[in-house]
Write a protein that binds this DNA or RNA. Structure first.
Lengths: 133, 133
DNA sequence: TTCGTTGCAAACATTTTGCAGTTTC
DNA sequence: GAAACTGCAAAATGTTTGCAACGAA
């Protein structure tokens, strides 16, 4: 049985930090963001709590970009654009997958589909420019 | 300017290995697969060549599953089902995204979309059973 | 007082890299 | 013979973990 959860100021701060940004940051970014405000915060705690949130479904992973796992405080169905140039991750509101499509994937594989992740890859507004060289 | 490519027996074997399986393996799997046949193969070479293939578009990454990057020898548009239980990765033939949808993502973000990755997550046929406990 | 939470640092696992020797052209 | 390729082992990187101190119920 899993342990009864207790309240924790740091945990709250980590979740709030993630929910207060749209940059889909990695653990390290959250850590650096909160460190000035909470000087006795450790990176391990950030990792531990992010893992916890993910388990509870409070946050989601966007996947690994340039070796770093990126997290998203939003959990409603939406997609992402990942810039191959600078690593920026942007929300994409359109293109929510239909239930029918998801059901088809389950039927085809014989498994049970519980979620999906749709990432577009390419070059963002800024990196698009800089590539014309 | 990038170096002129030379032929290499090991490189061929690595690509052939990846193309000859549908299990979307990580680097280590490819290494273990080829090692008996090519005793003087090193893991570093597998990593180096997989990175190279990815750059050239000969293979694609399915993303990181359980801490390991998984590769796919198929490059035609299709999706994947990732089992959260055992880590199996299966091809999903249906649900190819329309060009219109992809174009919309580009327009919405202001960037240029060069590709996408659609992963379904859930429990495969076998793991589905074992979860009824 | 109990038990979850945390800091710290060490441990871990995967991937990358430098260099000297080898293979390909 | 020049340049790319490779083995090997060390290094780098991101993440996890053990343990003693801390904080919440």
């Amino acid at each position: 049985m899993e342990p009864a959860r207790k309240h924790s100021r740091k945990r709250d701060a980590i979740l709030a930090c993630l929910r207060g940004t749209t940059c889909h940051p990695p653990a390290e970014w959250v850590y650096r963001q909160l460190k000035p405000e909470i000087p006795d915060l450790s990176l391990g705690t950030v990792y531990r709590n992010l893992a916890l949130f993910k388990e509870e479904g409070l946050i989601e992973s966007v996947g690994t970009v340039a070796g770093l796992e990126r997290f998203d405080g939003r959990t409603d169905p939406h997609c992402h654009f990942v810039c191959l140039g600078c690593g920026a991750v942007l929300d994409v509101e359109t293109a929510e997958l239909s239930d029918a499509l998801i059901a088809t994937a389950g039927r085809e594989t014989g498994g049970r589909v519980t979620g999906y992740r749709l990432n577009y890859y390419g070059y963002c507004k800024d990196c698009k420019k800089n590539k014309n060289s």
